[in-house]
Design a protein around this nucleic acid. Structure first.
Lengths: 132, 132
DNA sequence: GTTTGACCTAGAGTCGGCTCTAGATTCTAC
DNA sequence: GTAGAATCTAGAGCCGACTCTAGGTCAAAC
């Protein structure tokens, strides 16, 4: 219930106060952030929760413009669930593709690591082959 | 054996000719690219293979400066395997961390997708809860 | 009553990673 | 031999996502 200052939200989310203001300007919040006495931002728990979602989406590579589009849909309220679903499904596909790519990279690295360990005698039975 | 033009390498790797020249300037190639008669670049199969490695490393989020550092080690030749190993292991940790993050994001998205599908009646038995 | 620290706005600056331009040269096909 | 495509260099430009600065307000602690 409380109402949190921008500094408190920064502490909780790990975003800087700069970034919090920046995200607000970019329209990443579902409601305009409430203001207290002196025009200071007062964040609700819901705001913080939503920021958590944004952080996850960013961490998974969604560009700010897309997060904004999604936020716009949520802000608009009920009636656009189909569009929201579309955004989410599309992003899920991208995330899956990204995981797949990471996995391929991981195999490459793991292989190289094994080969170097073999070379250095840190490990036996490694079939050494073309490098690098 | 052949020797490939920059255009051919662009086709094969999916990088643009601009990017290929840029990567070269950034020192991402283990050998200076051979030049033909008129000063045109002539890439070897090894160059293309190495570019493939760079592409993988980039795709997994390694910054150009780190790829460059690693390339420098490879270019320097034998004797620095320990350092190469260190670079690779560090990157592997980052990749694993990134996969973990992606997985968490995937769970969030999948959950939201399920809830919206439930709301839209596309699916039954979904325990609807706090959204967005 | 003044100093300290958190906050405000508007706007400028930075950084990574490309991407493009200009102006010149060279190769390829007719 | 000439038009059109591909290449070259050097350097400028762009975009996304922050990050910081300047100049100011305000509350609380000393």
């Amino acid at each position: 219930m409380s109402g949190l200052s921008i500094g408190q939200v920064a502490d909780r989310t790990g975003l800087s106060v700069h970034t919090l203001r920046f995200y607000e300007r970019q329209g990443l919040l579902t409601q305009p952030v409430r203001r207290g006495s002196a025009g200071h931002r007062v964040y609700s728990e819901d705001d913080v929760d939503w920021l958590g979602v944004c952080i996850r989406l960013r961490a998974s590579g969604m560009p700010l413009t897309d997060i904004r589009r999604y936020t716009d849909l949520v802000r608009a309220g009920q009636g656009n669930e189909v569009e929201r679903l579309e955004v989410l499904r599309e992003h899920r596909e991208r995330v899956l593709a990204q995981m797949h790519e990471l996995d391929e990279c991981l195999q490459l690295i793991t292989h190289k690591v094994a080969v170097y360990e073999g070379r250095l005698g840190l490990r036996d039975n490694v079939t050494d082959c073309a490098l690098p």
